[in-house]
Amino acid sequence: MTDQLQIIAEGKGDFLKVDPDGFREYVRDHKQRAMNPKVMSEQEAIKTFVSDGDYLVYECNYLQRGPAALIREVIRQEKKDLWLGAKFTWVAAALLVGAGCVSKLDVGFFLFGPVVEEAIRSGKVKAYEYSNVVMTNRIMAGAMGLPFIPVRSFGGTDGFEHSGAKLIEDPYTGQPITIIPALNPDVALIHVHQSDVYGNARIFGTGISHVESALASKKVILSTEEIIDTEEIKRDPGRTTIPYHVVDAVVHLPYGAYPGECQGRYASDMGHVIEVVGATMRGWIPQYLDKYVHGVANHAEFMDKLVGYQRIKDITGRSTIKEGYGI
């Protein structure tokens, strides 16, 4: 027998239970291998696939190709007790916390402000500390079907103390190495440029961990700018970013990233972005949500009544960079 593996230090933060075999069994039992159409409305997708208490990942919302319309629907349906993977999240964390949807945050980076601050300080929301890279590494480990992954960052920080990380003696080199728990979220919300009805999806341009999130998550909801024919997918399979068999719902939501940008399609709406950042920094999230989320029934009505033709024309016209975006 060899010596026991030595744990030098460990964080005290709660973390989503690590269960790679459980995830495999979920995948075996729930991920559709058959090519079944999965197109549905955003109401149906969120109602069916987001449950109270779920762990939710998304990224760059209200910045670039974020699932903005889907997140507004999560708020509209008043989901509760969510655990957010808050990396590259920007104002979405504040909107979801302000709406009372959240009980836990795994922090990489979010736009702070009085609403989240007060929620954390009062204990309504519990924050666990990571970083953007450590969070995407965790999702990578989840996508690889592993229980944990060693990383060369994060050790020595105070975040470590408030996380699920451990410092161990590497059995191969004998050196100290940080390990972090894999993350298999319950739900990934991902906005894409193109998808067929089965969920074979194309993303053009940059992203943070969209592929890993799709592969690591139990339930994957795509919103897409455009529904394309499967024949088009087969014409250029190297362009398929996310394969259909990990996808549970496809929602056709043109301008679904509004007020953020969708590369190659439309620019951000600067006025709206400044409005929502102002609301976040001043603690006016409830007023913002009343107007832009609860004031309309769905994304179509949001675009019709609250955004309107002139602003759609403006953001579309300002999207002048087309190279690399499949257009």
């Binding site: 808050a86 990489g108 989240v116 953007n132 890279v133 450590v134 994060f154």
Partner: peptide
């Protein structure tokens, strides 16, 4: 409270 390390930690 502020926003966290973002990518700076790594």
């Amino acid at each position: 409270r502020f926003g966290g390390p973002g990518g700076a930690d790594s």
